[in-house]
Amino acid sequence: MRPALILGLCLTGTALAAGLLSLIWTPWDPTALAVTQKLRPPSAAHWFGTDQLGRDIASMLMAGARTSLLVALVAVGIGAGVGVPLGLAAAARRGGALDGGLARLNDLIFAFPALVTAILLTASLGPSATNAVLAIGLFNIPVFARVARAGALSLWTLDYIRAARVAGKGRARISVEHIVPNIASLLIVQATIQFSLGILAEAGLSYVGLGAQPPTPSWGRMLAEAQTFVTLAPHVALFPGLAIVITVLGLNLLGDGLRDALDPRLRGRLT
């Protein structure tokens, strides 16, 4: 295996493990205030120090991992769950009504970056983590639809698809049996990329107050709250940022590694 892939797996695994572990155990209660202990630098008791309200930063980061990963994961689920079937259906009848409609829908959704959607949702419904999930997920839909459509289109011209049609298989069945397995690697790589972009987007939205609301722990909001104290205690801003970088870097390395490992051009005529 390639070193980048291993490093990616390790970093992503660390973030995932921290998030899962926080469900049953954190060093301190991430929501417990201890004003006397505020802005303490890293120590044996508080590995990453404490914030302006005396909360343990390490514990908050673990709990925040849960929020970040969950938001990004659900957003990828929404994007892939809606986008992939749309893209497959559009490719199955190239130039058909659905194909044209999908192109227009993609144009429309691309006009609403996640931040703009989140602004709209927050303005009309009030702030919540659900807004962030919806805003990021919605923007993922055309991304997955495009990848699925492009991958499927290149396969639909191949003779083995014609062979399946001669065997009497319908377009939906061909899409499931022959197209999906052969574009799975493309989709997995895209999902990894969208996952990492989702974590960045969630952090950004929480930072400007459009995402997770207190007391839900969130890396982005930790940074927003840290901003005022950054001159007094840089560690308050340093560690949440590093947590984001490590997770996103891990996912990006994983995505690149998977692309290289799954790219048919690098495997000769295997696929």
Partner: peptide, 30 residues
């Protein structure tokens, strides 16, 4: 449908690379 079959030109694109030969050649039974 079963009384009529086809052989294509390109031996490289005629088969789904993810299925074994037995699955591939029994596809016309569909």
């Amino acid at each position: 449908r079963a009384a009529m079959q086809i052989v294509f030109q390109d031996p490289y694109s005629s088969f789904d690379p993810r299925q074994d030969v037995e699955t591939l050649i029994t596809e016309p039974f569909h």
